[in-house]
């Protein structure tokens, strides 16, 4: 049903550290891999080896340049996937009930066998977290790897979302954001975790940790320059003769 649960027992979600993310896109690829082989319709590619390739992805990494009032500019890599919003507008607009939010853990999912592929839920999501698969005609979105996190056939350390498991920088954290004592909640409290587009009223569960303030190193930037200064301003001897001779030519 597309009525949102009044509250969920858990609020499972991701905490993404914008300070640590190096923009390697490993999470994008592991997500694509896992979700093509497992839950629901595969994430298709169109014209994969042709001139105009495109495909369905549930996680994408943008990069932004920030120019503070003082100090050097910063490059911030910005992974973005479904934020499993508490007030998910994508769920309530769905005419078929295919989109739903789970009462037990707050994960937002699509029941693909009920989805007519109208696209309205993707229109309603401010974050671009839903993509209509061009081949299957059904809506695809991050499942928070619902088929990993509870999967007893996997070794315990693998029972977390593929992106979190794969991130080489440790920039992605998974846990219950509804429990104030969980590791992820403490991380959010410590680092000032933030919501994306809070004014849209979606109440995202996923949080983003802002980049730490950078040390200002601009004055150290030319430490090698003194060693590279021209040795002789006024060439003498052979060089002086050569200089004059060339000038005359």
């Amino acid at each position: 049903m597309t009525e949102l649960p009044a509250s969920t027992q858990k609020k499972l979600g991701l905490v993404i550290d914008l300070d640590t993310c190096v923009g390697c896109h490993a999470c994008v690829i592991s997500c694509k891999g896992w979700n093509t082989e497992n839950y629901g319709a595969p994430l298709s590619d169109m014209d994969a080896y042709g001139a105009d390739p495109s495909g369905t992805f549930l996680n994408r990494v943008h990069s932004y340049e920030i120019t503070p009032a003082e100090g050097p500019a910063q490059l911030v890599h910005f992974p973005k996937s479904c934020l499993h919003c508490e007030d998910a507008p994508c769920v309530t607009v769905c005419p078929t009930g295919a989109s739903y939010k789970r009462q037990e853990d707050g994960i937002v999912l699509v029941n693909e066998s009920a989805c007519i592929g109208c696209g309205l839920c993707a229109w309603a999501c401010p974050y671009g977290a839903r993509e209509l698969d061009a081949l299957e005609g059904v809506m695809k979105k991050c499942t928070l790897c619902v088929d990993r996190i509870y999967n007893e056939n996997l070794p315990e350390e693998d029972r977390q979302p593929a992106c979190v498991r794969t991130c080489p920088a440790g920039a992605r954290h998974f846990g219950d954001l509804g429990d104030p004592d969980s590791d992820v909640s403490r991380l959010v409290a410590e680092r000032g975790g933030m919501d994306l587009m809070p004014e849209q009223g979606t109440k995202p569960v996923n949080k983003y940790l802002p980049p730490r303030p950078k040390q200002d190193v601009s004055h150290d930037m030319d430490i090698l320059a003194p060693f590279l200064e021209p040795v002789a301003e006024d060439p003498k001897g052979f060089l002086g003769w050569l200089d004059k001779a060339l000038e005359k030519l």
Binding site: M1, T2, E3, T92, V93, C94, C118, L120
Partner: peptide
């Protein structure tokens, strides 16, 4: 089915 929440 979802007339309770969905305008569509």
């Amino acid at each position: 089915t979802q007339w309770k929440t969905s305008w569509l």
